[in-house]
Design a protein around this nucleic acid. Structure first.
Length: 205
DNA sequence: CTTACGATTCCC
DNA sequence: GGAATCGTAAGG
């Protein structure tokens, strides 16, 4: 990890709008290994994306977009590369909006490998003595650890002034993607749209 | 307004 | 295995 590079020259690391302007399934797979960055008053919170799920749009029974265009899903129909945040069971979940405007695909972020700002993440999770793995190995847990709530709804992930950004990987990595069924849903449960970094211990169970 | 229902988490 | 928990969407 090269913190000098992070602080001095973040722009070349930012992903492009074009990255998100692709098929949802592609964006979900390609997001693995990328870097999620939360800019806070206590410094940068940095983590590697290790688990994602694709939600395909209005014809995906498990997707929120299957309800059509509502106040909640509005951002899904807009410009790709923005954050879709929603609440569930008192927790928050983070998605990346994918596909061109009008096509409401999105990518659920399900687990992170914490890299920087780990003490702040522990504090946000409410447990100072927490082990590294359980800090962000679930969709609700990672939002709490990264300080992501409804304020982040619609945040532009490719804007260097945004509180929530997605960067290229911080260092070279080999990347083997494993494909499986989406977790925790009852509709279209057999669709294989969950993507994980093979062998990564920070993936959710 | 009322009701049903989760893309979850944590504890027993 | 089960409870906590609360916004959303749908129906009256």
């Amino acid at each position: 990890m090269n913190m000098v590079q992070i602080k001095d020259d973040p722009k070349p690391l930012l992903l492009s709008r074009a990255f998100f302007t692709r098929e949802t399934k592609t964006v979900a797979q390609e997001s693995l290994g990328k870097t999620l960055v939360r800019v806070t008053e206590d410094g940068l919170l940095v983590a590697k994306i290790v688990e994602t799920e694709a939600y395909l749009g209005e014809h995906d029974p498990a997707a929120h977009a299957s309800f059509g265009r509502t106040k909640r899903t509005e951002v899904l129909y807009g410009e790709p590369g923005h954050a879709y945040v929603y609440q569930l069971h008192g927790h928050h979940c983070l998605n990346f909006v994918a596909e061109p405007p009008g096509s409401p695909g999105c990518v659920l972020i399900r687990a992170l490998e914490p890299l920087e700002g780990i003490e702040v993440m522990r504090r946000l999770r409410g447990k100072n003595e927490m082990e590294l793995i359980p800090i962000a190995n679930g969709p609700g847990k990672l939002c709490k650890a990264m300080g992501i709530d409804m304020v982040m709804y619609g945040a532009d992930l490719v804007d260097p002034a945004s509180p929530l950004q997605v960067w290229e990987p911080l260092e070279e990595q080999e990347r083997q993607v494993e494909i499986s069924r989406r977790r925790g849903i009852t509709k279209a449960a057999d669709w294989e749209l969950r993507f994980t970094l093979k062998g990564n211990p920070y993936v959710s169970r």
